[in-house]
Simulated assay, not measured.
Amino acid sequence: MQALFEWDFNERKNDRVEDSIFRIVQEFGPGLDELDFIQELVLGVIKYQDKLDDIIEKAAPDWPIHQIAVVDRNVLRIGLFELLFGDKKEVPARVAINESIELAKTFGGENSGRFVNGVLGTIYKELGEPGKDEMPAKKKRPKDVTYEEMPIEKLGGAVVYRQTDAGFELALVHDVFGYWTLSKGHIEANENEKECTAREIKEETNLDIEVEDELGKNEYIASHPEKGKMRKQVIYFLAKCVGGELRLQAEKGGLDNVDWFTLPEIPDLRMYDDVLPFVTKAINLLKLKKS
């Protein structure tokens, strides 16, 4: 696990992987008689990294592989490698999944175990008992397409605020990767962006909102199990809470919590880099309202 972490953290340079494996084993497991197995596992994950990542993205389509924490994505790679290429007699599929969950709990964040369980469980259900070197034939793999050919999905999201005696507070949702982020949802064709955003926020957080300023747009590429790679375009708004009690309506889309935060608390939260600019702009607008 540590060898893969170092490899991934160091921009996936392969020239010193075997040296790293030997050094780590000597440091943390002197006398270990499973060096061959460890080398086979680590080098196998590296060899099939692209294939493993492609499957992981299809099982967690809302989360591009680069947004998954380094520990979590390498635990997933290990577990998936064993599911696809491991000796089923020595390591049955369910054992491989359970071992990955324990790795995630030990080395990952608070929600890593649950996340790894969900992703590998989804893959296991799709693959059944996968063959050693083959992918299931029951579903055709989406063909690779250029950026221009990728289907586009539009979403609307908001920085939702309320004003209390203590000042402004923002409502944020928490995902299974351990990040606080913004609530958002799908915009249907020909829908009004503001009305749709208000509806999606209500469905996800139970809050009634009044959409105000547009904060900007963001785009990222995600993978869908059937549609393949697609461009997700999100428009974000500043929105005022006008009713409703904040609560997560359903644990869907990889979310597990929701809460209010004062503006001074925001900088200490773990947030995605591509979300921070919209939160910062919203805070600046709120400061202008206050003045």
Rank of each mutant, 00 (worst) to 15 (best):
A166V: 15
H186A: 11
N192V: 08
E149W: 09
A171H: 08
N111P: 02
R94C: 12
I152P: 01
N117H: 13
E191C: 07
V145S: 13
N111Q: 08
E110D: 10
G185P: 07
H174I: 07
G113Q: 00
R162C: 11
T164M: 08
T106Q: 07
N192H: 09
S112D: 02
V176Y: 03
N192E: 05
N192W: 06
T164D: 14
T106C: 06
E195A: 03
G157N: 03
V119F: 01
D133T: 12
E153C: 07
H174C: 14
Q163K: 14
D133P: 10
K154Q: 06
I123P: 00
K143C: 05
R114T: 12
T164K: 08
N190F: 15
L127E: 01
K125H: 03
M150T: 05
L155Q: 09
E126D: 15
A137Q: 13
D133M: 14
F115V: 10
V160G: 05
A93F: 04
K139W: 12
I152S: 03
F115N: 09
E195K: 11
S183V: 05
R141P: 07
G113R: 00
V116A: 01
E148Y: 13
H186F: 15
A166I: 14
V145C: 11
D144P: 04
K143F: 06
Q163G: 10
S183P: 01
G178E: 07
S183F: 02
E99T: 14
M150A: 13
R141M: 12
G131N: 05
A189M: 05
G167H: 08
P142H: 09
